[in-house]
Amino acid sequence: MRGIIGFIAMLQGALGFIGQVFFDSGWGLLHHWFDLPSPAYLGVFAAGAALAVWGDVDKKRKRVGPGAAG
């Protein structure tokens, strides 16, 4: 579940940043609810990337099982 939420956050962060910096308009959903500066969208992207990696590592850890060398 973390991976999906992370991917959505990455997408919204990237869309918001690209829309504000290159096209001077808001893209994605976040600009409808929040008035964020461009660096904040990069922060949303980074937080989403961290969630996606955390979810992927957790999923792989559960698949291998506890106590397995890896």
Rank of each mutant, 00 (worst) to 15 (best):
G43F: 01
G19H: 06
V64Q: 06
A49T: 10
V44C: 03
G26Y: 04
M1Y: 02
Q12P: 10
A46C: 05
D35A: 11
R2I: 14
A69N: 00
D56E: 13
L42R: 05
M1V: 02
G70P: 12
P37S: 11
G55S: 11
P39M: 03
D24R: 09
L36K: 06
L51T: 04
P66L: 11
W33T: 04
D24Q: 11
F23Y: 12
A50D: 06
I8W: 10
G65S: 12
A69W: 00
L30A: 00
L15P: 04
M10P: 01
H32D: 08
A52R: 00
G67V: 14
G6I: 06
W54E: 05
A69G: 00
W27I: 06
F45C: 14
G70M: 13
F34K: 11
Q12Y: 11
A40V: 10
F22N: 13
G55W: 13
W54T: 03
A69V: 01
D24L: 09
A9M: 15
G55L: 15
L30E: 00
V44K: 00
A68Q: 11
S38Y: 02
W54C: 02
D35M: 07
A69F: 01
K59T: 13
V21G: 05
F22S: 15
L30D: 00
V53C: 14
R63D: 14
V21H: 07
Q12I: 09
V53W: 13
F34Y: 15
G43A: 02
A40H: 04
G13S: 09
G43T: 00
S38I: 01
A47C: 14
K60W: 03
G19Q: 03
G70Y: 14
G48E: 06
L29F: 15
G16I: 05
A50H: 06
A46W: 04
F17N: 02
I18H: 07
H31G: 10
A69L: 03
F22P: 10
A14N: 05
I4V: 12
G67F: 14
I18E: 07
F34I: 11
L29G: 13
L30H: 01
L15F: 12
K62V: 05
A49F: 14
F23W: 10
D58I: 02
M1W: 02
I8P: 01
D56Q: 12
G28N: 02
P39L: 05
V53M: 14
L11P: 01
H32W: 09
